[in-house]
Each structure stands twice: as C-alpha cells, then as structure tokens.
Design a protein around this nucleic acid. Structure first.
Lengths: 120, 120
DNA sequence: CATATCTATATGTAAATATCATATAGTAAG
DNA sequence: CTTACTATATGATATTTACATATAGATATG
C-alpha cells in the first residue's frame, strides 16, 4: 500500500536524463548499479530511485548501449559490472545533441519571459 | 487502430513544458486553444499535439491557473477564450524557477561531457 | 549464536503524461 | 452538395516514473 499518492513532477523535469548521465559516467570508468548512484547524484541532481536505476540499466543493456558481466568480489555480494559499448557512445553523442536543443529551447522561453517580466 | 507503435521520445524531452509556455503567452494576451498553437510552435519548438493542448488547457483551468469564457464570434465557430489568473502567475513564477534549475542541471552535464570529450 | 544492518540487484503496481486516432459541429468555398 | 477549414474535445494505449517490496550474501552488535 502506498503511503502517499503520486503527484505531478516539477515543471522542467527532463525525461530519461539518467541515461545520458550513466553513459557519461561509464565513459570514464566501468561501474555497477549501486556504485553509479554516487556519481548520478552529482550529475543528475537530487535523488535517483535505485529500483528504477536497475531497471534502466537492464533496458540500456537490451539496447546494447552497455554490457555487463558479474564480478565475483572476494568481499561483499557479487556485482554486475557495466561498461559502455560503441553503440552506447553513439547514443551518448545523440543525447548530447538533443540536450543542446533542449537548452536552447529553454533559453528561448527565458527570453520571452524576460520581455514580459523584465530582467532578474 | 494505431498505424505505428509509440516510440520513446528523444533525450532531453522536457515534460509539461507546454504549460509554462501557455502561461507566458496568456500573460501577454488572452487567447484560445487553436490560436495558442501558433505562439506555442515558436516557444515550445516543433509540433504541439492539438488534442493534448486542449486537454492540458482544461486541466490548467481545473487548477485555476487560467479561466475561460465562450466568445461568440460573428465569424467562425465559437471560441473558448482563456486568460491567466493570479494563481496562474504564481505558477508561472514557480515554473521559471524550476526551469532555471533544469538549465543548470543540463549545464552540469555539459561540463562533465567536456571533461571527457573535450570542447566542441 | 541470533539478529540486525549494510551492500547489491531486482520486480510489482499504480499514477502521470504524451501520442495517435477519432468525434463533433459550425462555416466557407467550389 | 461536397469538401475543406476552424475549433473544441475525448478514447485508447505506450512510456516513464514513484513508491513499495522481495531476495540474498556479508558484516557488525548484543
């Protein structure tokens, strides 16, 4: 049973922003789900739902943007270690271009806003 | 029956971006749904689904961000003319703040991107 | 030793939103 | 009369997210 009913997200919510962020993080270093959380909170702001993150990672793997193998650590439970693929690098580049467009879209809004309400 | 199965949107899709845009446009001049389309294509980019726009307008009215009355034009079909309310102006300001946060979030991503792939 | 907590991965369910299709109706043009 | 345009609206469905819960090994605490 849910404690609280879902509410609409804030305006300006960027859909699936976590995916480019994961691709960018994995471009630096291979990592696993739980370990990605840390970097994501820096790059994706606020909180990332851990359940959704795992689901997203499996989806990204299905799309062949990332691939995984089990890392049988001598300490702690096994980790599914992800790395980015060539296809994933292409997707990251596409995301970069899309996000550039998003940025200019939002800028366009701010220009209009400024015209009506003045600078601030 | 649908011709095509739905596909995921591009990365960088900003959810409910149309609402702040409508509020901004109505801050300048009262208008009606069909007439808002034109301004929206400038401020919200690309295409806005007309069915979705009408549904959004009714939802915004339910939230008391805008209010409408029927304009019995001497030419053409009747138009539901919308204007922004005081509450709507407050919502527009909230959206402005959220979109500023979104902008800095995306900027944060670009900084990380540049570190890995260099400037461009 | 029993149990609680932490790391790590994963799935179930429901709500919110967008997309595509379709419905309705008045008006204008040919 | 039929076609096209203006204008508003709803139905069905896919995608994504939020919140909750499940599982299991490892480690710490009493």
């Amino acid at each position: 049973m849910r404690k609280d009913i879902s509410k609409p997200r804030n305006f300006g919510y960027v859909e699936r922003f976590v995916e480019p962020c994961v691709l960018l993080l994995l471009s630096k270093n291979p990592s696993h789900g739980y370990g990605l959380m840390e970097g994501l909170e820096k790059h994706c702001g606020e909180k990332v739902d851990i359940g959704n993150l795992y689901r997203t990672l499996r989806k990204m793997e299905k799309n062949q943007w990332i691939k995984s193998d089990w890392e049988k650590g001598n300490i702690g439970p096994n980790k599914r270690k992800y790395e980015i693929t060539g296809k994933g690098k292409g997707t990251l580049n596409e995301a970069y271009i899309s996000l550039k467009q998003t940025q200019s879209l939002i800028n366009h809004f701010f220009i209009g806003y400024k015209k009506v309400f003045g600078k601030k």
